[in-house]
Design a protein around this nucleic acid. Structure first.
Length: 115
DNA sequence: CGTATGACGAGCC
DNA sequence: AGGCTCGCCATAC
């Protein structure tokens, strides 16, 4: 498989255990680019069809669903997370204290891909 | 190659 | 406290 930053992001997301959530920034940090949180979000935005990706387990740094794109995405995400036992506050936020998951360092996941 | 975009984050007002 | 702006990084065009 061609190793791009996106692919690396997908692999990290795939290793998120059910019932746990992580943030874009943490994924970016795990990949060796702590400032690439935007790119991480963009990677999920370009999620290829046919790939079963638990993208719903990725939230922003405050534990809230990112609703920048459209209206239905966050709703689906919330429903999926709730079905996994993740509780939402009245503000629509997740308790990262309980459900947070820190991805292990995965720099080598894509670092060996020369430009 | 330069510009634009995007599911973010931290900082400033 | 809440909202807005700038910055960072990786692709698409």
């Amino acid at each position: 498989m061609k190793r791009s930053f996106y692919q690396a992001v997908y692999q990290v997301v795939l290793m998120i255990p059910p019932g746990r959530v992580t943030t874009y920034g943490r994924i970016a940090n795990a990949l060796g680019s702590p400032r690439a949180s935007r790119a991480v979000g963009y990677a999920l935005f370009n999620t290829p069809d046919g790939l079963e990706l638990p993208w719903h387990r990725v939230v922003n740094g405050r534990g809230e669903v990112s609703a920048r794109g459209g209206g239905e995405r966050p709703l689906r995400q919330r429903a999926l997370l709730e079905s996994e036992g993740i509780a939402f506050n009245d503000d629509g936020r997740i308790d990262l204290r309980k459900n947070c998951w820190y991805p292990p360092p995965c720099e080598e996941l894509w670092a060996e891909q020369p430009k």
